[in-house]
Design a protein around this nucleic acid. Sequence first.
DNA 1: GGCGATTGCTTGCGGGTGCAACTAACCATA
DNA 2: TATGGTTAGTTGCACCCGCAAGCAATCGCC
Lengths: 153, 153
Amino acid sequence: MATDWLSESEQHSWRNFIMTVHDLMAALEADLAPHGLTMGDYEVLVWLSEAEQNRMRMCDLAGALQLSPSGLTRRLDGMVKNGWVERASCESDRRVMWAHLTGSGLAKMKAVAPDHVASVRRHVLDPLGPEGVAQLGEIFGNIGARLHDAQPA
Amino acid sequence: MATDWLSESEQHSWRNFIMTVHDLMAALEADLAPHGLTMGDYEVLVWLSEAEQNRMRMCDLAGALQLSPSGLTRRLDGMVKNGWVERASCESDRRVMWAHLTGSGLAKMKAVAPDHVASVRRHVLDPLGPEGVAQLGEIFGNIGARLHDAQPA
DNA sequence: GGCGATTGCTTGCGGGTGCAACTAACCATA
DNA sequence: TATGGTTAGTTGCACCCGCAAGCAATCGCC
């Protein structure tokens, strides 16, 4: 039966996906490394730069980054040390810590973004073309929809 | 210019991909966890079970798993401790260590595979349908081809 | 045959992450 | 107001991983 194992073409697609994702992430990390940051750092910069007043609550940021609370604490430690982010306590709820993008962090973001965008273009968007990019979005939209349907139940 | 940043649709596709991959891997890991192994462990079982005489040289296995030599050493440590894999020295080249799948490891593989296959079907193949699966393979084939073209140069 | 270069694997070390436990603060209800 | 439950964030611990160093064995070339 087709349900007990994968057909040859299914297996080909699946393994292609699994192995290429690994290489792709490594390539993106490698392109970002000369700038002194990781993909994780970059995503912090992106989210904070797009946030109102360039700041987010730790818990919201952790959710956005798909990171555990402790994971975010440690990641921010590094970014604070680099001067890209500041912690600020919240007046209205003293449990909350704001992660606030500094001017230096915003400058870093603007300096690095073009390179990273070019990297994504080179490794992903250009090889796929507009049609492939649309398919990529649709495919992972479908997978994500199924995932989020099942989980919160 | 379109080359300095991503269009809205490009950004949508890209973020959808990045975030869903994270959730997808977490879901696959979670489905595998009750069996007492990780995706990494499972992949070792797959490669060794498909290998000639159920064994591979460490360096070849590391390449197959996209793992550094030290990473493989540690992963095998765990699998040896669980009795799924044995190390065996090679007669013809005494630098080489064979990673050899034990009977217990093969049994584990056969016991777990149907569940994992079902997990992949549920989270990926079913939501996409045959056409989507083919697109998935093509997309990452294209990305992978571009990656491997550039690197070895 | 011999010696430098290469290959295969392991170990030390540091970085990144999640889980569980903990503290602090907020909230809801009596 | 008092108390139990919830939420936000940090810290301790363990795990996984890659890099660099080290060691052993093999290969290549004189």
